[in-house]
Design a protein around this nucleic acid. Structure first.
Length: 508
RNA sequence: GCCGCGUUGGUCAAGGGGUUAAGACGCCUCCCUUUCACGGAGGAAUCACGGGUUCGAAUCCCGUACGUGGUACCA
């Protein structure tokens, strides 16, 4: 058996949304599991929708997610070119071939004529009439026009398209890897355009021709393509033979809180829908990405993988390697899944805890620097990040959880301290500063011991004192253990913060 | 309208003729910690509906409802 070759075929029209990334992911996992090739081909046959920069954006997303293609416009490969716009010439001959064999025809109808047909045939029962077996003989095409007139029109370069001639009364069926047997009545499918007036193929022709030429063995795509699958099946039958057709897998859609997940949902409900930030060059509108929101690629991949698939065990956290090992297409769901941002955050939280800090330290550092905190000592910073990582779900949380290591508090949780503050406490902390100065090894244990001994000596409850110390050092009741905080900020800063706070509290 | 696909707690889901119908997120209670988390122990909450088939149906069949996709010279 020949090598497995799976392709992802995005059209460069904008950001890469969740459903898109999941499609790539399943493509990638399937290909890698079989030791096959992961091919990325760009479907840019519609110039009107082509958006500058979108192709680069797609590859940036793939890189961030850790899914490098084996063949692509960037890497090249044995079946180059990998952009359909650059393969334009090859499609026409297949269209001509179909016409010659009686499976397709030239259609000369103008957009106005099509519009008129749709209006004329429109009824309450049939709100959107198709160009199909019922109307094709009343239209302007090589089936209805005399042969010499067709020849003349072609010779004059009259604008025309090539349409597939859908047979009547046939059942077109194929086996989908996810849905099993799927069948359609050919009479109900319309005569899809194969070659557009500008000479570019439509997706229908291009996908079949390219999959054949690139020797694709498996094709994964969103379920929105299922309806046009009969066209592709027929094209395979007419052009190359059904035995060479790749195996199809139509993946369920990812849904938003209400209906199909859209870009708008992101803005509306406050979560990202794209892998990375995307700015539409035409409108300058920015759509937030998971990366910029503070997600780790490991978590992003993980949450997407299990949205519509699981391995049948209770495991939920998977690395890319584990996914490749455990992924199986027959465990992919048939039904669409609603995206839950709360659960998405949970995955990120898990990965922040799981991964070594060094993995995301640069990104956290960047967040601090953007907010004006200068990090001189990276090792020290790494220790701090390690200290607070289990209380962070998104990367920006690190700032809120750890700024106080770099900034002396300016405000205090007065409500907590006020009822506890008295002369005895004032006295205690003055004495504690002395104890601190006597500590030879400034570490958690010595600080804690000194603190507790002094408390016992002065006969004050340790708990209360600890709470006050925390507010002195942090400003509020949050963060890791007080003594580890003291150790981390150092002797001088600890004393400084106690003194400052004592003065503040003495005004109570 | 027509065609396709689907339907297990609020969400993600396991289970595919006999189960007390797993687990996770979220929510609630308690423990731990005189902080916030983490962690631990509990709790509330589900087989869309109606018919069959069967000793027995979440599971198989048929309808219905609902959801969703398509119905473009877009992918």
């Amino acid at each position: 058996m020949s090598k497995v070759r799976v392709r992802f075929a995005p059209s460069p029209t904008g950001g890469l949304h969740l459903g898109g990334v999941r499609t790539v992911l399943y493509n990638y996992l399937f290909a890698k599991k079989q030791g096959g090739d992961f091919v990325v081909r760009i479907e840019d046959t519609d110039q009107t929708r082509f958006v500058a920069g979108a192709e680069d954006y797609i590859f940036n997303c793939l890189t961030w997610c850790g899914m490098e293609p084996d063949e692509s416009p960037l890497t090249g490969g044995p079946f180059a070119p990998y952009r359909q716009s650059e393969r334009k010439e090859s499609y026409r001959q297949y269209a001509e071939q179909l016409i010659k064999d009686g499976f397709a025809y030239y259609a000369f109808d103008t957009p106005q004529e099509l519009e008129k047909m749709r209006n004329d045939f429109k009824t309450a029962e049939n709100p959107s009439p198709q160009y199909d077996g019922n109307v094709r003989m009343q239209m302007k095409n090589s089936l209805t026009l005399p042969a010499d007139e067709v020849k003349k029109l072609l010779a004059e370069n009259t604008r025309h398209v090539v349409r597939i001639k859908m047979p009547a009364g046939e059942t077109i069926s194929f086996t989908d890897m996810i849905h099993q047997e799927v069948s359609f009545d050919s009479s109900l499918v319309d005569d899809k355009v194969l070659l557009k007036a500008d000479g570019m193929p439509t997706y229908h022709l291009a996908v079949v021709v390219d999959d054949f030429l690139m020797q694709i063995t498996h094709a994964f795509r969103g379920e929105e393509w299922l309806s046009s699958a009969p066209v592709h099946v027929l094209l395979w039958k007419y052009l190359f033979g059904l035995d060479k057709m790749p195996q199809w897998a139509h993946l369920p859609l990812i849904m938003g809180p209400s209906g199909k997940l859209s870009k708008r949902d992101g803005a509306k409900y406050g979560f990202p829908v794209f892998a990375m930030n995307w700015t539409d060059p035409k409108t300058n509108e920015l759509t937030e990405g998971f990366k910029e929101r503070g997600f780790l690629p490991e978590a992003f991949i993980n949450l997407l993988a299990v949205l519509g698939w699981n391995d049948g065990t209770e495991q939920e956290i998977f690395s890319m390697d584990e996914l490749i090992e455990k992924f199986s297409i027959d465990k992919v769901h048939k039904a669409g899944a609603k995206f839950d941002f709360e659960k998405a955050k949970w995955f990120n939280h898990e990965w922040i805890k799981k991964l070594p800090v060094s993995n995301y330290l640069p990104r956290v550092k960047e967040i601090f620097e953007q907010k004006g905190i200068v990090i001189n000592d990276e090792n020290h910073f790494a220790k701090i990040v390690e200290l607070v990582k289990e209380r962070c779900t998104l990367l920006p949380d690190f700032f809120d959880q750890a700024v106080f290591f770099y900034q002396t508090p300016v405000t205090y949780d007065e409500a907590s301290v006020k009822p506890k503050w008295d002369d005895a406490k004032q006295d205690f902390f003055a004495a504690f500063i002395n104890s601190c100065n006597n500590i030879t090894d400034w570490d958690v244990n010595s600080i804690e011991t000194a603190f507790k001994n002094l408390a016992t000596e002065k006969n004050i409850k340790v708990g209360e004192l600890q709470m006050i110390l925390r507010v002195m050092l942090v400003g509020s009741k949050m963060g890791p253990g007080v003594f580890i905080i003291a150790e981390t900020i150092g002797l001088a800063e600890t004393i400084n913060r106690i003194e400052k706070a004592s003065i503040y509290f003495s005004q109570f």
